Measured scan of single mutants.
Amino acid sequence: NKFNKELQWATWEIFNLPNLNEEQVKAFIDSLRDDPSQSANLLAEAKKLNDAQA
């Protein structure tokens, strides 16, 4: 299933962003679980936040 692979990839990527704190990671993962179809958008937002906090 396409969404499942995207969800797994986005989850792994978010867990490995070095500049997000635990609460931010949890919030993004919760959002992914709530709406897996938004995984690409949520990953992009997480990466933006990660870069901003570098």
Rank of each mutant, 00 (worst) to 15 (best):
K26G: 02
D34W: 09
P36D: 02
L32K: 00
R33N: 15
E13S: 04
N50F: 01
N4K: 02
A40S: 13
Q8I: 08
F3K: 02
E13R: 03
D51T: 06
A54T: 14
N19R: 01
T11R: 06
Q8W: 13
Q53A: 09
N16G: 09
W12R: 10
E45G: 04
L49H: 03
Q38I: 05
N19G: 04
Q8E: 15
E13H: 08
N19Y: 13
L32W: 02
E13K: 06
A54H: 10
E6L: 08
Q38M: 09
N41V: 12
V25M: 07
I14Q: 03
K26D: 05
D51M: 12
K2H: 15
D51Y: 06
L49G: 00
D34K: 09
F3S: 03
R33G: 07
A10K: 03
L43A: 04
F3P: 15
L7Q: 11
A54W: 10
Q53R: 03
S31M: 14
L49I: 10
F15R: 15
F28L: 06
L43F: 04
N50P: 00
L7K: 02
L43D: 00
S39H: 14
V25K: 15
N21V: 06
L20E: 00
S37M: 08
K48H: 11
Q24V: 03
I29F: 05
N19D: 05
P18T: 08
L7P: 04
L43H: 03
L32I: 13
S31K: 11
F15T: 15
I14V: 06
P36V: 06
L32F: 03
L20W: 01
Q8R: 04
A52F: 12
L20H: 00
D35W: 07
V25T: 06
F3W: 09
N16F: 04
I29S: 04
N1I: 07
D35F: 10
L49F: 05
N50W: 00
W9D: 11
L7F: 11
N16I: 06
L43I: 14
D51K: 10
D35M: 10
L42W: 08
E6D: 11
N1W: 00
L43W: 03
P18K: 12
N41Y: 13
L49P: 00
A54E: 11
A10T: 09
R33W: 15
L42A: 04
L17P: 00
L32V: 06
E6A: 03
L32T: 02
I14L: 06
Q24D: 04
A44G: 07
D34V: 14
N19Q: 05
A40D: 09
P36I: 12
A44D: 11
N16Y: 05
L42E: 02
S37Q: 09
E23Y: 13
L32R: 00
I14R: 01
N50S: 14
E23W: 06
R33P: 01
N16V: 04
Q8P: 03
E6N: 05
D30V: 12
A52R: 10
D34P: 01
Q53N: 06
L7N: 04
F28K: 00
S39M: 12
S31F: 12
K26T: 09
W9A: 14
N50R: 00
E23V: 12
N41Q: 05
L32P: 00
N19H: 13
S31V: 08
K47F: 06
W9N: 13
L17A: 01
K26W: 11
Q38D: 08
S31L: 09
N4V: 04
W9S: 06
D30T: 12
A40L: 14
D51N: 10
A10H: 06
W9H: 13
K2Y: 08
F15K: 15
D30Q: 12
Q24A: 02
